[in-house]
Amino acid sequence: MINQIFFFYFSAVIVAMSVMAITRRQVLHGVLYMLLMFFHIAGLYLFLNAEFISAVQIIVYAGAIMVLFLFVIMLLNLREDIRKKQFIAVWPMGLLVSSGILMVVLMSMLTVRTGTKGVWGIAQIERVTETVAVGTVLYMQYLFPFEVASLVLLVAIIGAIVLAKRKVK
């Protein structure tokens, strides 16, 4: 019962905040609604026993990515752009397409059939704590993707610096 109340609260806020975020005229307000949404998503992750990921969600999304957005918004002088029309002229078309895809997604969820269960049940995770469990899986089975991810981040750092740097005279 109490689980369902919390689930409905979190999902209602997540949906409402994401709608608010994409409809704001002032970009900074959109970013702030996103921030609230990230907090509620982190709360939802706690319900799913993913405490490490929920902390990472707040540190990376709220603490780094959204700050980056705010930073860029502050550096740019957006007074002209926010006066322009908010949506494209044929936005009902976009609504139609995305709600059509939503219908397909929702219908397909009804027939979803889950496969065999893995080894990391709640009791097992509780025994070694969640961070240790994620670390074990990450470094034992997914070591190569992890290295690739670090390479992706390196490329992103170099790319961002090269792109945003002014020409050296």
Partner: peptide
């Protein structure tokens, strides 16, 4: 169990007061 990560998360939020106040 993730006390230290929680502290990082909260200290990374401290910047919002600063940015938004100034903006």
């Amino acid at each position: 169990n993730i006390g230290l990560l929680f502290l990082f998360a909260m200290s990374s939020l401290a910047v919002y007061g600063v940015i938004l106040g100034g903006w």
